[in-house]
Design a protein around this nucleic acid. Structure first.
Lengths: 230, 230
DNA sequence: CGTGCTGTTGAGGACGATCAATGACGGTGG
DNA sequence: CCACCGTCATTGATCGTCCTCAACAGCACG
């Protein structure tokens, strides 16, 4: 998400690397750990357990995302691996040094916070009053867009139907039926446990997806811009 | 939302006051006006028109809220008066002067942006997989909490059932039935066109409402705090 | 060879949308 | 004063979407 120089500087500060496999927690409910986790590879998700035991997925994380940014704003919650993940750990102290050294870093962090906010707002629109078909389509479009931003071209999204269900807020059974409808429409295809998007145009038009909300930097108003140059 | 000294300074810069009555737009879809509107009195809402003509209300605004903060993050949208409103207009130039003069102002603006993000995230949780009864209850709890923050004690919320419907994403008909259920539970009462909360405890427990997410300042992590002292 | 996770399929039922009609109230113009 | 209109609230009936319960198939892993 950051530019080259800053990225290298950040990667330099990674003291320790961990890995996690599907289902394992990356960041638990520790109040305030002394370190920050940066997702280096794989897909993770930020979720919350509801009273009835259901799992509500707030967001999916890709390589380059700071895990704790997502947690702070959702107040409470867990970050867990969705696919095999590799995680870098950075000390808070080091990160703060970096921020004073590279002011652009702070803006980058802000930008990703804003992006997450924008995503959840967009989701809000799409969850209410939209059919399950559109919800799922939109969710998949969002993943495609995020993957592109991180430089992944493969049209294969390694999410299970359960992941979709928990993220879309629909029952597994209904996700399955919806999924099959998308199969019969030749929009998706099955690749083992993963989902392949075979007709992106139709997916986008079905979801009424407008990826612009993911590219916010230009859209930020003068106040945000102000914070960048001090 | 701001503290005394800053508030006075801001109010001092108000060049012009406008008023709007129910339904009138306060901020239209102007790309980038040269001024910023501050809601001084009344209730407004930030909404968006969907393709099918339905109105989706993103947020309700109370006295002290900057209208444009809400618009920037929802990308596009309109701010309209829900009750009779009084609006103060501030030039961008003046506002920027104020920000350099009172650094705390910037944090205040950020905080309210974050609060809005937090609200929409919370809404997301409550819209999906919650019954209409709980959705409405939660929405009303949110309004009560926001009103308290602004210093309004009256338990009478001047929203029509249509406003509720558009904000909750439910049909007017169903809102009406839900509303009557809340009446028969002795949780709400009718006061003319407005809604009165007669049993707040039960409303809160029904909605499973945890107002903590509205008081974010303490929750903000070190990165946010950093932006306050430079 | 059992156990667990994921996916699949059927049947019944709850919730909320939509359509349609009606009532209540306030304002406006004749 | 009254007829007319617009907004908001109310109520009934029907229907589609999605949930829940329940059973079962495929597959990996021990």
């Amino acid at each position: 998400v950051e530019s080259d120089a800053e990225l290298d500087a950040v990667l330099d500060r990674i003291k320790m690397r961990t890995s996690a496999s599907r289902g394992q927690a990356i960041v638990g409910s520790d109040a305030s750990p002394k370190h920050t986790s940066l997702l280096l590879d794989g897909i993770a998700c930020s979720y919350e357990r509801l009273e009835d035991g259901a799992r509500q997925i707030h967001a999916f994380l890709y390589a380059g995302d700071f895990c704790d940014l997502y947690r702070q704003s959702s107040n409470v919650g867990t970050i867990a691996a969705v696919t095999a993940c590799s995680i870098g750990v950075i000390e808070h102290k080091d990160l703060e040094h970096l921020i004073t050294q590279y002011p652009a870093l702070r803006s980058a962090l802000w930008r990703s916070t804003m992006m997450e906010a924008s995503i959840s707002r967009q989701r809000l629109l799409n969850k209410v009053r939209q059919s399950a078909l559109q919800r799922v389509a939109h969710l998949l479009c969002e993943q495609m867009a995020r993957r592109e931003l991180v430089g992944i071209d493969r049209a294969t999204i390694p999410l299970t139907q359960m992941d979709l269900a928990d993220a879309a807020g629909l029952s597994i059974v209904h996700i399955n039926r919806t999924f099959h409808k998308l199969l019969s429409l030749r929009i998706l295809a099955k690749v083992g446990v993963a989902i392949e998007v075979v007709n992106k145009e139709r997916l986008v038009s079905l979801a009424n997806f407008d990826g612009r909300y993911l590219n916010m930097p230009q859209l930020l108003s003068h106040w945000q811009i102000n914070t960048e140059d001090d």
